[in-house]
Design a protein around this nucleic acid. Structure first.
Lengths: 202, 202
DNA sequence: TGAAGCTCTGAACCATGGTTCACTTCTTTC
DNA sequence: GAAAGAAGTGAACCATGGTTCAGAGCTTCA
């Protein structure tokens, strides 16, 4: 044996893989899944198309990884806010705000995660993550009901309405560009969400 | 001139075109846009693939026509209910019920219209129709606010939440198969919708 | 430095599925 | 019935874009 991967070499490969995922994420956020060809992604990462296949067995596998990383971050952040400090209604309010704010800050990515046309493998992953978003919202709604802050209700449906509303706001260039309009939009959205869960209006 | 289309021939062609659209709609409802190849659709209609191009210049044009017909029917029905008799809150309640009920009755088609992966031309059409659904809901919410039945709110966002909630319920096999569960689901969904718009709970 | 084995390249390859077209079949008119 | 012309056929064509692979260039180790 005249060659063995040295630790440095291993971490270099690992870094290349991470870089590829990062660049692919940017491309997807920019132009959507359908336009993110292997060549486009490889170009963005500064490698040849063939080299992609050293890190992933197929384009679909790369796409799924990109999706999981990005969606995983959102689930994590949302989970921390919804499961954090404060009473259930406060947490719900902050959760909606954080979810929507992050989405508006990176619309391209949010659109890719929530709604953009994608290959079946990504579609399946998306269903799974939407279920997770819903489960997180549903849990805090249930806590609110248990604490007597919210009226009895089907928490799953309320949760669906919340993700649905946020999704709709993003799909379409509904939110204006300037800061004031964005603030207003977030306030209106949060108000609708609280009403939807049955929280007394402020 | 030894040949001229006779009226009977013209209506036969028209009928063939309608039949093609109908069969294509069924195929799409059954297997989704991505699996609805020209061959599959032509087979379903009992004609050759090439014959499709006598009625439509491209597959995309056929797909758009299929979408418009089906989505147009839904918009029309929803519009009639929301713009019909009764006070705004009653109409909103019935509108949500009708929209969701029709969707649950033909899930495949509803999924195709609201969420299934589709080619860009259909995606653009979908955005347009989602805007129409929202506009219809928003109008009745505005009327409710004007009538003092609903609190002041951003009607567009409430409308987005309504379509979003219904969409979420459909995307996922959330609704159970039996009749009782469906009734309960519709009741819960309507309740969430009314809360979302700020109507006093029953 | 040389041998061995790996990474990287990018042009060729190939699968998929929409589209075309030479040909057949049917309809109309004389 | 025959000519003219449209509708209908389906196999061949072609564009797109994911995947492969033979060779070039590196890295490791003796």
């Amino acid at each position: 044996m005249a060659y063995r991967k040295t630790p440095a070499e291993i971490s270099r490969l690992e870094a290349a893989r991470e870089r590829l995922i990062g660049c692919a994420t940017e491309v997807v956020a920019d132009v959507g899944w359908s336009q993110a060809s292997v060549n486009a992604v490889a170009d963005a990462a500064g490698i040849a198309a063939g080299s992609v296949y050293q890190h992933f067995p197929s384009k679909a596998a790369l796409a799924v990884e990109v999706f999981r990383r990005a969606a995983g971050r959102e689930v994590e952040v949302l989970g921390e806010v919804l499961g954090g400090a404060g009473d259930p209604v406060e947490r719900l309010s902050r959760g909606v705000d954080v979810f929507a704010r992050r989405a508006l800050e990176n619309r391209g990515l949010a659109y890719a995660l929530l709604a953009a046309p994608a290959e079946p493998a990504v579609g399946a992953e998306r269903l799974d993550f939407r279920r997770r978003y819903r489960a997180l919202f549903a849990e805090v709604v249930r806590e609110g009901v248990a604490a007597g802050q919210l009226p009895p209700q089907n928490a799953e449906i309320t949760a669906a309405a919340l993700t649905g509303a946020i999704g709709e706001v993003l799909v379409d260039p509904l939110a204006a560009a300037d800061e004031n309009a964005t603030q207003q939009l977030l306030a209106d959205l949060t108000a609708a969400a609280l009403r939807c869960a049955g929280a007394p209006t402020a």
